[in-house]
Design a protein around this nucleic acid. Structure first.
Lengths: 119, 119
DNA sequence: CTCCTTGTGCAACTAAGTCGCATTGATAAA
DNA sequence: TTTATCAATGCGACTTAGTTGCACAAGGAG
């Protein structure tokens, strides 16, 4: 059984292990600060961003911008939507079905007021 | 017949007229640079952003982030989706129907590869 | 061991957007 | 008409997430 690193032909390093293990445990997409807080080791932000860029390039990680000028990262899975609440700013993964669209959809971001804040 | 400015209780100024008239003619959401190019007058970016913030606050304009760390603006209309192409970076307004979502959706952003780039 | 590639840390940089402040301009009161 | 008031504008400094250049470290190949 090849490791995820072997499968993608990149070296296994503590930094990469740490980033990936945080993403593996995450229920929702996380930004740099959130990931850093959860990581067991410290690393320079350049190291973080370079590794996440590599992961993305290899298709291991998917990123998108919320409405706070920050990138949010998650492990690549099947295409699903993210609901970003205007009020509490939480990001929630949701399943939606989308009607006909011209092109191949890879990411879906919905914004609005979540159930909890709406009430 | 009240002007749009009277209706929202704000002063009509050349800057505001210029911004709004660009947005009125736009087929798709535009960012600051795109709007500036199309405006008939010049104004400081602070003026632009403050006015657009006011428009947004009054519900006249809707803004969202694409994946390029820029805000895109359009006149508020019914909720519809924006498709952002990974390849050509064009932003296209599309009608979609989305299934059940927990909360009130105000904005929908789809990313992927558009029909033109996909082929 | 030496070469060479790849990963990391540090510090400087980038750029969209924001903010403080002085000035302008229009409206309202005197 | 003059004066007071308040919003709109311009300018320049600032903020901040993310990026880049460069020197150094690590680690495998020959």
């Amino acid at each position: 059984m090849k490791t995820i690193f072997e499968r993608h032909n990149i070296k296994e390093t503590p930094a990469r292990n740490s980033i990936l293990s945080v993403l593996k445990e995450a229920k929702n997409p996380l930004n740099y600060d959130q990931i850093r807080e959860k990581m067991d080791i410290e690393m320079d932000k350049a190291t973080f961003y370079r590794n996440i860029a590599k992961f993305e390039e290899l298709g291991m990680v998917h990123k998108f911008e919320a409405d706070d000028r920050k990138w949010y990262f998650e492990l690549s899975t099947s295409v699903h939507a993210h609901f970003i609440c205007d009020t509490c700013h939480k990001i929630i993964c949701v399943d939606v079905t989308i009607g006909d669209v011209e092109g191949e959809v890879k990411s879906i971001v919905l914004k609005g007021t979540c159930k909890g804040c709406k009430r």
